[in-house]
Nucleic acid binder design. Structure first.
Length: 220
DNA sequence: ACCCAGGGTCATA
DNA sequence: TATGACCATGGG
């Protein structure tokens, strides 16, 4: 038995406070599951406003489909996604993802796979790391996977629940074992953490009325 | 002018 | 395994 760092009380209190403060976030901001996958790659270390422009470009060029992206020359694809930054490397990563997607038979066949198998398959793609894979699993494939990002780390560290040096799998495992594996809960939880981060509450002296500032456990 | 953003890979020690 | 360099646009 692995001893858990995170208690059910703490995680539920954080969620309740975030939800009460911000309400439902309606994630992922995309029209289709495939668009979620594309957005997951494009948003790597990049503000969403920039990703939105890139996706708009792909739509206007009628290239927001795996087959189209694969056939597009690197140079042209890079030009379309230019606003999202890192456009040369992301063009290659997008193609890697699309070739994998087509080769695996698209959503029809991929949806039959078990979550852990699908996850390993995603991680095998060059350009898809843990967070991108989990974004895709949760928001495109509706699997109960908890996404860990820099904001999650900062929040838990600030609250004194973790040291911040824990590796990705440790944190993901803790969330998934502590909370009941519910797709909608995980969907909303991660979205709320990102929403909260946009309040710029995570810098020491910029937190005015931070919704998670009060002690998590009021009684011992 | 500077800092950071809804990360990941690769080379080096 | 653990750092550091690198990728690059756009908003504050």
């Amino acid at each position: 038995m692995i001893d858990l760092l995170l208690s059910i009380q703490s995680l539920e209190t954080i969620y309740d406070r975030l939800y009460h403060a911000y309400g439902p976030q309606h994630w992922w901001p995309a029209d289709t599951p495939f668009e979620v996958m594309v957005g997951a790659v494009l948003t790597q270390n990049t503000a969403w406003s920039n990703v939105d422009r890139a996706i708009t470009n792909l739509k206007e060029a009628k290239c927001l489909a795996a087959d189209d992206i694969i056939l597009l020359p690197d140079k042209q694809l890079a030009e379309l996604i230019r606003p999202s930054g890192y456009f040369n490397i992301k063009a290659k990563r997008l193609k890697n993802l699309c070739r994998w997607f087509v080769k695996q038979g698209g959503f029809k066949l991929l949806s039959k796979k078990k979550t852990d198998v699908l996850r390993l398959s995603l991680l095998d793609i060059n350009g898809v790391g843990p967070e991108t894979a989990d974004d895709i699993l949760l928001y495109a494939f509706s699997r109960p996977v908890f996404v860990i990002d820099i904001y999650t780390r900062r929040l838990l560290t600030r609250l004194g629940l973790i040291t911040g040096t824990e590796d990705y799998e440790t944190l993901r495992g803790n969330f998934e074992k502590t909370l009941t594996p519910d797709v909608q809960l995980f969907n909303e939880y991660h979205a709320l953490i990102v929403r909260h981060a946009k309040e710029k509450c995570m810098q020491p002296d910029k937190c005015r009325h931070c919704v998670v500032e009060a002690p998590l456990v009021t009684s011992d």
